[in-house]
Design a protein around this nucleic acid. Sequence first.
RNA 1: CGGGGUGUAGCAUAGUGGUAGUGUACUCGGUUUGGGACCGAGUGGUCCGGGUUCGAUUCCCGGCUCCCCGACCA
Length: 419
Amino acid sequence: MRQSRLLTKTKKEAPSDEVAKNAQLLIQAGYIYKNMAGAYSFLPLGLRVIEKINNIIREEMNSIGGQEMYMPSLQEDRLWKLTDRWSDENVDVWFKSELQAGGQVGFGWTHEEVVTDIMRQYVSSYKDLPFSAYQIQTKFRNEVRAKSGIMRTREFWMKDLYSFCATQEQHDEFYEAAAKAYERIFDRIGIGEKTYKTFASGGAFSKFSHEYQTLAEAGEDIVYVNEKKGIAINEEVLGEADLSELGVTREELVEAKSIEVGNIFSLGTKFSEAIGLTFKDEKGENRPVIMGSYGIGPARSMGTVVDLLSDEKGIVWPESIAPFRVHLVALNTDDQEVKDWADGIYTVLQKEGVEVLYDDRDARPGEKFADSDLLGIPYRVVASRKGKEQGTFEVVTRKTGEVRNLSEEELLADFDDEE
RNA sequence: CGGGGUGUAGCAUAGUGGUAGUGUACUCGGUUUGGGACCGAGUGGUCCGGGUUCGAUUCCCGGCUCCCCGACCA
């Protein structure tokens, strides 16, 4: 992608109406645009990051057998009345509307009811179980107060996976596999070290549920952490009985701010019983399906990465989710020979399949470097007059600042190592 | 939803009851080219509604917006 053609531009100053670092940097660098409080557009750069995150999530969900599908935002009131989650008294985040043809609809803020209803048609025997299905889809929640940039919005992507099992053993096994997959996801997007599987209250069908909480100053949650034991606990389950069951004491836990990037939850038979999702077991008896739900917010994860990994110069993307792997910066572009040299390596890198953003703009070096730092692409490759004379490109690692001067062959070899 | 703050050009900001200023961005001309360079010229603005006033961007009332704190977040 040629930066001169990229539809967004960086700004010299951060927007004054954002305090959250994630929003300040992402807006300043041209990744996102705020349309209203709690509703952001993802511009080409931002969408590339989201897609990378989504693909990592997909790979990990597929690896535990999840099958991707897609369910509508528009949902009829009927199903939600079955679980007593339609009324505004019980659920205060609904966006609702009326059908012109008559009848009420809501914009989905989660999909347990819908997916359970769908599966009634495809589950009839224990032989159909277990399985799991997921989607990456837009949720709507009528938050009274949107805040913290892209961390708490009224419209957002969510990966929501639902598991369907015949027995508690099946469910527990899948739940553990899902927990492992979540850890791999947060590792891969670069926040694994700071992300804790956190014990939270479990609801009617399990002792605990689990939140994935990333320790961060910008967090709006509070968790109690024991780093040595790798355990974190939500204040909901900070009672003596719960703590002793988890094998920790209150004294060894440290209070910390955190961001909830995901959660996994055992649902038991709450939804299957209410909506009538049953199967015949080996004895021919009807039994309700045992379910679980597993959520991750891709945009919130993206914001967490920005909050956690950026420095005073701007964003620092991990390679796994950077919008491009290489930022090719051409200097001395008034010199046609240097320009051709830069164009040449751009073409070669593209041919080699390296994702490259090419700053071919006719701008001064300082501006280009400042923009490059702000954008946070992992490797900056500088093509300049000086470099051309020496036959090398300067390669700067954004995260460490390490500088190397590589020939074209060395450069290509460096970016050739497919993982 | 309670409390506090805010609203002036694409962005960031100053100011005044009487022609709205600066930086940046943008356009044009010239110089410049390894860390947001410089000179000159130019385009572009007072959240909405009402009131007071000869005159309101400024004062008053109402609304809306965005941000923050709190509450909320199955």
